[in-house]
Design a protein around this nucleic acid. Structure first.
Ligand SMILES: [Mn+2]
Ligand SMILES: [Mn+2]
Ligand SMILES: [Zn+2]
Ligand SMILES: [Zn+2]
Lengths: 138, 138
DNA sequence: TAACCAATGCAATGGAAGTGCATTTATTGT
DNA sequence: ACAATAAATGCACTTCCATTGCATTGGTTA
């Protein structure tokens, strides 16, 4: 069991107080978060630092973005073996129209999508919207 | 064969010069357009008018939005029988990473997506990115 | 014609993303 | 330990797109 410090070092980024805090914040959350969410959680820190931290995490494949159609980018920790960039590995995302939360459905892979002749598929984004388990009350 | 005027009236919106022009512009395009595209095509018209025209078209289900992940909303005419709001009718969208154009693949329906117990699927957004037929050169 | 309402135009706002540069903090070599 | 160096942080500013308030224009109806 790696410590967070060891994990960040293994990803070749320096360990700083801010990065540890943001990492822990993301790890505790069960849902994808926006930059504003992080901002609200760390009001003392500058927005730019938070922004750049999350971008660094993204580059190093510690988090991945989710475009859930709300127009606001959300971020969430990559799971182990989350090859964000490889099409075949892509899982789907669920956005709840009630509580407005977005989550990764890591175990639900995106089915093979057929495209017409002449088209080449490199990447797929699939977002299901509806009511999440918490909100459907079962 | 309805005229455009008759079509707009059947959708309960008033026929104006601007609306006719924008409708024709959309009808000629084979690809989804941004508000900026429309702006560039009608430089004499005010941006707000164009914006509100497209929003009116959207409300009346004359056009539908596409969120292709570029961060810029695109619009395209609904095809006949395009029940934009009904899940089972949803077709997929393709965004070309080369020419940056986005098109509806109307004939390609989104496969049934399984969601975990307790989750209710109301709507699905699926965008495939890659190289379009024009750009793949075949 | 007068009254009314919808469509248009202009100006301003807001939110989110991104950048330039100065300052602070951490790392490295001597 | 100290100086040199590089990275991280903070502040200010900018850009881009979406959206709204309000005044004006134009078309429809009594
Ligand atoms: Mn995910
Ligand atoms: Mn479409
Ligand atoms: Zn919910
Ligand atoms: Zn193309």
């Amino acid at each position: 069991m790696k410590t967070i410090e060891e994990f960040l070092e293994s990803k070749n980024i320096r360990v700083t107080a801010m990065r540890l805090l943001i990492y822990k914040f993301l790890a505790e959350k069960q849902v994808a978060v926006t930059l504003s969410d992080i901002e609200n959680a760390f009001e003392k820190a500058d927005r730019t630092t938070l922004y750049r931290t999350i971008k660094t995490f993204e580059e190093k494949e510690i988090v991945h973005q989710i475009d859930d159609g709300t127009g606001i980018t959300k971020y969430t920790l990559c799971e182990k073996g989350c090859n964000c960039e490889i099409e075949t590995d892509l899982h789907l995302h669920f956005h709840c129209n009630n509580c407005n939360e977005t989550i990764c459905l890591t175990e639900h892979k995106i089915p093979q999508i057929k495209v017409p002749d002449g088209f080449v598929s490199e990447n797929v984004n699939l977002v299901v919207k509806g009511i999440c388990d918490k909100c459907s009350g079962q």
